[in-house]
């Protein structure tokens, strides 16, 4: 089946079998390999992408279901070659990762949170990433990265004082 996808603000027409997950479509057809397969049954969250701004599991969505929505992958988050978004930079600042496998998904889940709430409490941060399993870090430096990014984003939005 042909399906039109809007990914990182670019349109792609791909020919897919109905059974192809959005995750496999992104990785195999579009070579967007930042989304990772962890469990392929919707628990670990490593395949998280944004659909209309909300974090969703791309392993639990078929590519044929994904037309007409705006999909954002980790590849769509950095402002330009060699550049990092404030959130990505905050993950580097706190070392909110180790092996990097769950990281793109973790950042997208955090991005979805911060796009709605720039002053999250620790509980809200924890809840927002609780569907994303990280086996390396014990989460502490991830939570700190998100809090740091929130702080920086709030700072950016502060009115300039004379």
């Amino acid at each position: 089946m042909k399906v039109e996808l809007d990914i990182n603000r670019e349109r792609h027409t791909v020919d897919v079998e109905p059974r192809l997950s959005l995750l496999d479509c992104l990785r195999d057809k579009l070579l967007l390999t930042g989304a990772h397969a962890g469990c392929e049954h919707g628990v670990c969250g490593a395949c998280t992408v944004l659909v209309d701004g909300a974090a969703v599991r791309s392993c639990l969505m078929f590519a044929v279901q994904a037309d007409g929505v705006a999909i954002t992958t980790i590849e769509g988050l950095s402002p330009g070659p060699g550049e990092l978004s404030p959130l990505q930079d905050a993950f580097c600042e706190t070392h909110g990762m180790q092996c990097g496998y769950c990281t793109p998904a973790m950042i997208l889940a955090a991005h979805a949170l911060l796009s709605k709430n720039t002053s999250p409490t620790r509980e809200e941060i924890v809840d927002a990433i609780s569907g994303n399993i990280c086996r390396c870090t014990g989460y502490a430096q991830i939570v700190e990265a998100i809090a740091l990014a929130a702080e920086r984003i709030r700072g950016q939005n502060d009115p300039v004082r004379p």
Partner: peptide
């Protein structure tokens, strides 16, 4: 109900 990401779908 599930997680944020599953409630979105």
């Amino acid at each position: 109900v599930g997680h944020t990401a599953t409630r979105a779908r």
